[in-house]
Design a binder for these strands. Structure first.
Lengths: 333, 333
DNA sequence: GAGATCCTTTACAACGTTGGCGACAACGGT
DNA sequence: ACCGTTGTCGCCAACGTTGTAAAGGATCTC
């Protein structure tokens, strides 16, 4: 069914090694021989057995991307860019869905598919630095600010600054009762913590007091969580004039809840999100958000991995910051 | 760094094969030996080299899922379910993003990662049956109705019936000028063709004439395409009282364009979509849609693949139909 | 107590590929 | 014509794993 080097070699009347040389672009093969081998390759539709090649070379050409959930638009968009960036290096991407739980994430970090992958790009939710210390697995690049000063390479955005900019933007509209949605009480929610810090910093700069009733924690960052948080906030009698959600999905849920409560956006309540997912560009109203440069994040991560695979496995961990941009739209017009 | 069976064997004072036997749960190993080996395994944190195992056994435990774009919510949600279903079989999923182009799809079908995968679940956009005839690769399961009567297993939903039900639902609201958005003029757009057929059938049943000015073709099924189609429709002076979009993303774009045109949904124009993506449950208004059972689709596909891998590679191709459900929401209330 | 039967462990080969190196041919310079 | 160099090609071994089959030991049966 499937042919091996040996079959091609027999057909071309050369040795297995010569076929291998042709396949791998080795220089010193006589044009006539090369032509004969190439004809045989085409006739038999030869495709290398990557497992065997990998066993021999120690490389698979496959990297893994581990994300909490694929159907969260931010991760889906990120995955798209990672797959594209990996393709530039000739790599295939194996995607792992961790669910965000600590145990599954530890398993993923410890080695998805083990020797099947050359490297791992990992966007953890609940993993701590401790979980990563004693890993002797493949090179890893972490995405997002969840694990501080871990032993691995890291691509982040400046969450604090971004959150401060959004909040300042809302304050600039004359809003003073600004809710923050998406805080995470767990110690692992580093992203949430940083965004909350930016929010607080902006309030302080503007001389606005911090009101904990305006800060809503959510178990996750899905639309339903955002809607529930807003419903709860409004039901408790707290009436914000702006809402900063820590993700766009939260914000879209919030928009929905505000709509149900009969409040107009942005007239009554301005709303801003974070992530710049495509939904926010078509929602009613369109969503003001922080746009992290996802393509850049993906490319930086892949390039970091390429560097590790290229040799310097023992260089100290690097941390790169991708740019972001505040993108005002109708929800804060 | 990474340890092999040989290292474990030396530490435990047994042969390589005995360690292999322990790892693979072979019955006849003396408890004392087993304990010693297991201790060594744990100490060295042994992890099998899957490439070597695969080379020996001819199986990788990895299947591929090929979709046009990961950041189209329908595919992202589908991917989520496929990954989950595959996990039940102990499989990892390698995701390939084809972009929907014919050439990339042919390459994908011809063998992603080649010997690295045991099987392929494939959701093609522009591939034709011809492209699949001479494939001698790994077992494949096709998703969606794009390739009719191809040589491979197939999981579909009843597009015609579903589209007819949606259209009938709109007619039931007393609407008679019902636009259809998402037609695809290319011969490959089988999904679009079937949904259009269902739309037409419902009109005929209700005695409503087919008006081609109400049928909008779109290059793709993204939000932007839906918005552009509606803008174009309205600009041309055609004024529908309902819109059936062939996907939810199209519908969300349509909602946006209607909003911009100052038309109220559903009062002035009712809108229905197709796919039941999460966005539609939180949009303003929430979106009436056809909900294909994505979890079932994923599980059927994975099970079909499991069947092929389990032995009957030469059984005739099977076609399974997953259920769908019309889900009325605010946009047609 | 001898042979048969079982359990436990091991040696060997093979999966398909490529790196190292050696064999041989062709070519250039003297 | 001879030697050295360069180019071309093939043999062998190895990557880490598991299937086969056989060896070695223990236990059982008569």
């Amino acid at each position: 069914m499937r042919h091996r080097l040996k079959d091609v070699a027999e057909r071309a009347g050369v040795s297995v090694k010569t076929v291998s040389n042709v396949v791998n672009g080795y220089q010193h093969v006589r044009p006539a021989t090369r032509a004969r081998v190439e004809a045989a390759l085409a006739e038999l539709r030869y495709r290398p057995n990557l497992s065997a090649r990998n066993l021999r070379k120690g490389r698979t050409g496959v990297i893994a991307l581990a994300v909490p959930e694929l159907d969260i638009p931010y991760f889906a968009e990120l995955a798209r860019h990672v797959v594209a960036a990996a393709a530039d290096h000739g790599w295939t991407v194996l995607i792992d869905q961790t669910g965000g739980g600590r145990e599954r994430e530890r398993v993923a970090a410890a080695g998805i598919g083990d020797h099947l992958i050359d490297g791992l790009i990992f966007s953890p939710l609940s993993l701590t630095a401790d979980d990563l210390t004693d890993l002797d697995g493949v090179p890893m690049v972490l995405l997002g600010e969840r694990v501080d000063h871990g032993p691995a390479d890291h691509v982040v955005i400046d969450n604090v600054t971004a959150a401060r900019e959004v909040t300042a933007h809302l304050i600039g509209l004359g809003r003073h009762r600004i809710a923050a949605v998406g805080a995470q009480p767990t110690p692992e929610g580093a992203g949430a913590r940083l965004r909350l810090a930016g929010y607080t910093a902006a309030l302080t700069e503007a001389g606005i007091g911090y009101d904990e009733r305006l800060v809503a924690a959510t178990p996750a960052w899905r639309r339903a969580d955002g809607a529930a948080a807003l419903r709860h906030l409004l039901a408790s009698g707290t009436r914000p004039d702006a809402v900063f959600c820590f993700s766009d999905t939260l914000a879209l849920g919030a928009l929905r809840a505000l709509h149900e409560a009969g409040l107009r956006v942005p007239t009554d309540v301005a709303v801003a999100g974070f992530d710049d997912i495509e939904d926010g560009r078509f929602s009613v109203p369109t969503l003001t958000t922080v746009a992290p440069d996802k393509e850049r994040i993906a490319r930086l991560a892949v390039d970091l991995l390429a560097g590790r695979l290229g040799g310097d496995r023992d260089a100290p961990p690097r941390e790169l910051t991708a740019p972001h941009r505040l993108t005002p739209r109708e929800s804060t017009a």
